[in-house]
């Protein structure tokens, strides 16, 4: 299974994403803010191949979380998954080094194709 860390403060987004990935090779692990995600990564018990990262979250938001990942030299590919869709916001995050960007709302086919393009492998079981 491909272990993916999903960081979003909205339970509904977790539920929708999980549903989209049912029956695929992706196993989702939830975090509800950036700090929880960093704590999960620090445990080192999982070998995450991808992080799905929301922008606006309590405690630690997406951009700050991403900056912290870079600082800690954690080079797991990150797909931003957010409703912020201005060219400026997208450009800034791409310049910072995120691999892809999904604008909410999204659909199952978009989620899967973006994950596949970053991982370079099919995830459908």
């Amino acid at each position: 299974m491909i272990q993916v860390l999903m960081v979003d403060d909205a339970k509904s987004v977790h539920a929708f994403t999980k549903n989209c990935l049912l029956g695929t090779k992706v196993e989702l692990f939830p975090a509800y803010d950036g700090q929880q995600a960093l704590d999960e990564l620090a445990k080192g018990t999982r070998s995450f191949q991808l992080i799905l990262l929301d922008w606006e979250m309590p405690v630690l938001d997406g951009p700050k979380t991403f900056a912290e990942l870079k600082k800690q030299n954690i080079n797991i590919p990150v797909i931003m998954m957010t409703s912020r869709n201005s060219i400026e916001d997208i450009s800034n995050m791409l310049a910072a080094g995120v691999s892809e960007y999904i604008m909410k709302p999204f659909t199952k086919d978009i989620l899967i194709s973006k994950i596949e393009s970053i991982l370079g492998t099919e995830v459908s079981a």
């Binding site: 201005s86 791409l94 393009s117």
Partner: peptide
């Protein structure tokens, strides 16, 4: 639409060749 441009188009090409 936002859904259509997310189907197959990598994000760096979207912001380079499209206006929002």
């Amino acid at each position: 639409s936002q859904l259509e441009v997310q189907r197959g188009l990598p994000i760096h090409l979207l912001i380079q060749y499209f206006t929002k």
